[in-house]
Amino acid sequence: MKKSGLFVLLLAPLVLISCGVNTAKSVSSLTDFLSASDVASLKIAATSVKTATGSSSAGQTSSSTSQAAVSSTSSSSETTSSHSANLYANEDFVITNGTDNYIGFSKAYGSINQYFLINASKKTGFVTNDATTLDEKRAATKALLSKDYSDLAAVYDLMKTYVGKSAKDFENMTSLSLTMSVNGDVAGYTLLTTTKENEKSIETRYYLTLDRFDSGWAFTNYSKRVTTTSKTSKGATVDYAVAEYTVSVVSAYSSFSLSLSAYSLYLKDAGAKDVTFTDGIPLTAK
């Protein structure tokens, strides 16, 4: 009895050590890649892409960074390297793409549907009863959502090409690391490479995160960072480029709401003379 008790006592730590093992590991085969859903099977509610580039040398740093909120009206100079798209219930949408900053939605008043298309940059818009008026911008929004998600799928495929390979398999590459982890309903893949060429060192980092939804795994967060360090006679110069994506996947689109007080609206293809109130009195007669 005493011997068995001692055995259990000695074995207990070894048993308990398994509790500390996490799901993170180095990717060794293609089976380590989860099956990600394609864009057609997902309800993508929003994507946001932002880029940043800059350089630093001798303690002097300069950068041009894009910062744009999803539905904000940031200055155009700050949105040149960013875009976002949102899709809501009833196929209402918001698209912010530098030149295109539009909000499109519909409102039902009894049996009548009215359609609003607002140019968010100019803070103007119109109202119409023609549903097809919003189709072009809505299609652009959907296309942007699809493109952004497809970009992440392409990165995922790119990562797969590094499976089973080492830095020696690539020219001038000095280090290669492909790792992944699954924590609950979130998975993350990290690809790090470093190449050296003469006096230049390029470090590339890919971070891709997937979330599990009802329909399967979907790409939701991504960041690519490229840092180029160049040694010159005056010292080292660091150039960097950052591209970051966020994708929102939902099981049901949320309804869209907007305060119109900030916008100037007009009736498309109609004037005040064409407007009649419910009591039959035309607007011009009021």
């Binding site: 993170a24 979130v186 990290t190 971070y207 967060n221 991504y222 970051e244």
Partner: peptide, 14 residues
């Protein structure tokens, strides 16, 4: 890794 630009990245390291 929570980027200041928004993405929340599940990072794996040794």
């Amino acid at each position: 890794l929570k980027s200041k630009y928004g993405p929340e990245l599940l990072y794996t390291t040794k």
